[in-house]
Simulated assay, not measured.
Amino acid sequence: MNKETNYQKALHCYIQASLNILNHFRSSVKEIHHIGSTSIEHMDLPGEVDVLLLVKDEGDLSKLADHVRGVGYDEVEDFSTGYIEEVVLRHRYDGYDVNFIMMHHKSKRKDEILYCRNRLQGSEKYLERFRQLKAAYQNEHINGDEYQVKKSDLFSSVMNMQGDADVV
């Protein structure tokens, strides 16, 4: 029996949600990336699908956000304290909440987010710590605030890993 994993389901959802955005707003979009825990195959935990949506021009960010809100996406104001300058919009696809984290394609945060995701994928030690942390949150052993603090600490550690610095 071929059971579809959480990762495969989230990946399919990411692709469908991204194609939907591109079908309507491709002229403003420079890059789209699947990020967060559902983007890491070996995590294989359920969760929200996070999509990093990078716009071509800074002026396009608010314009695109307004258009996306206009077609039924909800603004997420309490997404994470790390996303102060970005716009985060949410929509539901295939049973998943999909968070579109919108920012300018030259943002330093973009590089940090992609670097951290790639480093997590390449480190069993940090990947297992992230898996345990996410599972503790999902099983309500820790609350949302504690999860955010511990996740931020973990990501800081990942960012400070020694080794190959040109993973992105």
Rank of each mutant, 00 (worst) to 15 (best):
N6P: 01
Y7W: 12
L11P: 00
A17S: 14
S18R: 11
S18Q: 08
H24M: 12
R26P: 00
R26H: 14
V29K: 05
G36W: 06
T38R: 08
L45C: 04
L52M: 09
D60S: 12
D60N: 15
L61G: 10
K63V: 14
L64M: 14
A65F: 04
A65I: 10
A65V: 13
D66N: 12
R69V: 10
V71H: 08
D74I: 14
E77F: 14
G82Y: 07
Y83E: 07
E85N: 15
E85L: 10
L89Q: 03
R90D: 03
R92T: 14
Y96I: 07
F100K: 02
M102L: 15
M102C: 12
M102W: 10
H105Q: 12
H105K: 09
K106F: 10
K108I: 11
D111K: 08
E112V: 07
L114T: 07
C116Y: 00
R117E: 07
N118F: 03
R119P: 00
R119V: 09
G122K: 13
S123K: 06
F130G: 01
R131L: 06
H141A: 10
N143E: 11
G144A: 11
E146R: 09
Y147C: 01
V158G: 02
V158E: 03
G163L: 09
G163T: 10
V168F: 10
